[in-house]
Design a protein around this nucleic acid. Sequence first.
DNA 1: TACGTCGTTCCGCTGGATGGGACTAAGGGC
DNA 2: GCCCTTAGTCCCATCCAGCGGAACGACGTA
Lengths: 255, 255
Amino acid sequence: MLDGNAVRSVDRAASLLIALGESQGEAGVTELARRLGLHKSTASRLLATLQKRGLVEQDDDSGKYRLGLAVVRLGGHAERTLDLRSIALSELESLARNVKETTTLEILEGDTVLTIAYSDASGMGRDRSGRSSPLHATAPGKVLLANQPERDVIRLSKVGFTPYTSHTIVRVDLLLEELARVRKRGFATAFGEFEQSVNAIAVPVYDQRTSVVAALEVRASGNRILPSRVPELVERARDAAAVITERIGGVVAPV
Amino acid sequence: MLDGNAVRSVDRAASLLIALGESQGEAGVTELARRLGLHKSTASRLLATLQKRGLVEQDDDSGKYRLGLAVVRLGGHAERTLDLRSIALSELESLARNVKETTTLEILEGDTVLTIAYSDASGMGRDRSGRSSPLHATAPGKVLLANQPERDVIRLSKVGFTPYTSHTIVRVDLLLEELARVRKRGFATAFGEFEQSVNAIAVPVYDQRTSVVAALEVRASGNRILPSRVPELVERARDAAAVITERIGGVVAPV
DNA sequence: TACGTCGTTCCGCTGGATGGGACTAAGGGC
DNA sequence: GCCCTTAGTCCCATCCAGCGGAACGACGTA
């Protein structure tokens, strides 16, 4: 975990930040300390230090901690800094306008899929960048998983696949079949497998060396995406993905 | 800067993160070290530690560092965690729909004004949460500044007020007069003072104890907001601000 | 009142963080 | 080609800063 040349206290503080992000809302010192195997006085000191920089905030009443405004600001800066995101965004927007649906760019992040860019044709939607979704129940998740070694799928299956809806694929053998289909056809679908009334398709985004670095998704609620419309959406999505590939020129944020 | 009980290395690492956010794009180890008064070997070690957690990334070619994906994800989490933002968002959206313009919620953050929520009536705009703007040249900035002690304005004037356009108020005496007007009328305007063709109005958002915790802004490009329209926008914005005040119930993210 | 739990503070010890400097690689100028 | 500067990283002896144990005050509960 902590190899050779790393600063222990900083590594611990970073863990605290990330743990605080994973626990939705607030978390107490004792709870965090236990979760990370730290002494609670250590956790308290580290959190107090982070608080001075605004990275975390403490609730006046409960004494619990939550992520701070500095993190929001940093996140805004980071979004603008990261290569793939900014490059991809204009393509996502034009695709969203063309098909009149929501489009996102997703990458593999640990055992989840992370939304790094988002465009919304209908208008008022919130930018959903920064959200994580499951690999086995989403179209981009399947695209990314289909390009990982099969042992990773097996490993994930040990933990188990959460059945978000009645359509979620939870049996590992069926998921492996589905991933083979994805590889063969070059795109993935997910019809109400994560959220009941959301259908989506996704295609891979390659870098110059033809390895998959992201997945481009077209998503819509309810019955706006029917099987009959899939070929058209896939084709348009592939065009957009090709443009992104061309523009990133091999320079992709390493994951 | 670093009082008594704080962990030095963590404090330094936090400074590095924030400095990396402020420098747009990438920054080198030596540059960051000089800016913060650190030895470059120290900066290198701290950055390497942050990299292990994905908080920063290193460019393969240049060796320079930039903010990492973990920060994006944390930012997403933080946005959802922070109280004011989520509570205010639905109000912002409905106001944006009503007046058919962009609406934002802004708070004071150091010597700048920080956008913590954003809604865009026209549709395809990017969520601009997380951005910082100047206090003296924006409508929400004036609202927030008008509720700060006058000595803060004086202090800011020592650094000088950047003239973004020919309409920007740069003389401290004129700014103080403007702030008095803002206090008296209960709202602020900014007509092309920050960006040439952007006009905006802003009203204060109070907490239960009648102190100003944020500013609600209505903004539009070009000539969509003329003086004749200001009274109507201010009235609608005040209604929205009142609803937000009611809903936050005194629980506001401390700044 | 007595108890459990929370987050914080104090303090002595020690091992981890520090910074000087060596090292290597990549430009830029001549 | 060469040298010189600049970059980021690595190594190591020194020493002080971070560590964890324990005590503390505040709070809610039985």
